[in-house]
Design a protein around this nucleic acid. Sequence first.
DNA 1: AATAGATATTAACATTTCATTAAGAAATTT
DNA 2: AAATTTCTTAATGAAATGTTAATATCTATT
Lengths: 232, 232
Amino acid sequence: MKSNKRILLVEDDPNFGRILKDYLTLNNYEVSLAVNGIEGFEKFNRSDFDLCILDIMMPFKDGLTLAREIREVNELIPLIFLTAKNLKDDVLKGYKIGADDYLTKPFDSEILLAKIKSILNRKPNVSTEEKDTFEFEFGDFNFNSKLRILTHKEGESFKLSPKENQLLKMLVLNFDDLLPRDIALNKIWRDANYFTSRSMDVYIAKLRKYLDNDPSLKIINVHGEGFRLMKE
Amino acid sequence: MKSNKRILLVEDDPNFGRILKDYLTLNNYEVSLAVNGIEGFEKFNRSDFDLCILDIMMPFKDGLTLAREIREVNELIPLIFLTAKNLKDDVLKGYKIGADDYLTKPFDSEILLAKIKSILNRKPNVSTEEKDTFEFEFGDFNFNSKLRILTHKEGESFKLSPKENQLLKMLVLNFDDLLPRDIALNKIWRDANYFTSRSMDVYIAKLRKYLDNDPSLKIINVHGEGFRLMKE
DNA sequence: AATAGATATTAACATTTCATTAAGAAATTT
DNA sequence: AAATTTCTTAATGAAATGTTAATATCTATT
């Protein structure tokens, strides 16, 4: 059972942060831990999350400030605050910024889990930004990335695997332009190393096989840089 | 600065209920007070509210039971529970029913107000419920989701169980499109885990058996994503 | 309360899908 | 020519799904 929901956790106490991260990971969330507001904001901007859990009391940049910055960029992502005591003022400020909930430490982990579920449940896939664009035309193909189907006009249909699908989508979105290897690796494989890179090559090969049905389409390699989907 | 938002407050302690009602009224909400679950449900059905605040511990019909009944009729209305301190079990049950939040008594009225505001200000959920439509045609079938009957034209009729019915309805509402697994699980099973997921698979198998009567209809699996009811 | 019938969940096993890794060939750069 | 990067096929194991049957739970009626 994959949930694959991504949580950004910002907590300055390393012990507590680590434990909480592990606990959430055990419950099938993908958790990124930042130890202060500055790092938190960087991480937030570098990838897509479904929910943020922010400690309020932190050095350098406190959780409320961080929340305001996040809200400027993304006004929908659910925010949960952790407050040390029952600092009513913080709670009220939090709600004003647009918090979805808060928890006072110490809190019960099961309740946190229930809250997370409840929140993610009523705000379906916030992070799926490109929700509207899932249908593409290129060459002789029609490509539906939501249903993961690649159809050759007056030809056969291919069911794509999740990775094939993501990779093809990125290529199509950059049609005739370079898709840098490490960008694709970081987005799809969430990591860029020798092995993920080999894996990506395998998927390029698979996509090429599909695209053979329209001989005018090509996936060109730019040595050391990446790939380029093009016509002719 | 009139808000016009209507709140149903169900609280058996008459003193506390009265005070809370007055407090909310002062803050520009229109409050209807019921003193037990039975009266609460009657009031709920008699008019439209924007939010419900339910005490859990009540004679005759407790808040959780009331919440379940309300959820059957209206699956979107926000619910806030009031619970005595330390009743973790109640809290978890509440979330499972689809609570939006809970407060432990005694609570701070300003915080309650902040919560209410936060919940009511939430961007209205996109799901424009097609609550009223309960009769569908697809393939050779006529499907009445209110009576839970699936009829094959010039063929036999099937009485559907509640779960079969809900699942088929969601598939039909998303005809030819993806019905994401976790959306269906959260809506029908109110939880998404390994076991509910297996249960769902069993129901898909049952539906497929019914649909065999029109060989042009198929329920296709999109691996890792969900199912798709389609023709051809 | 007891029981039967309907409904829902869980178990078990088969099948399919998928991602990764290995391994050797080919291409490109130095 | 040596080193690096890319190409392609195949093998492997893990995870998701299909299916049937066995339990468990619920509901209505006696």
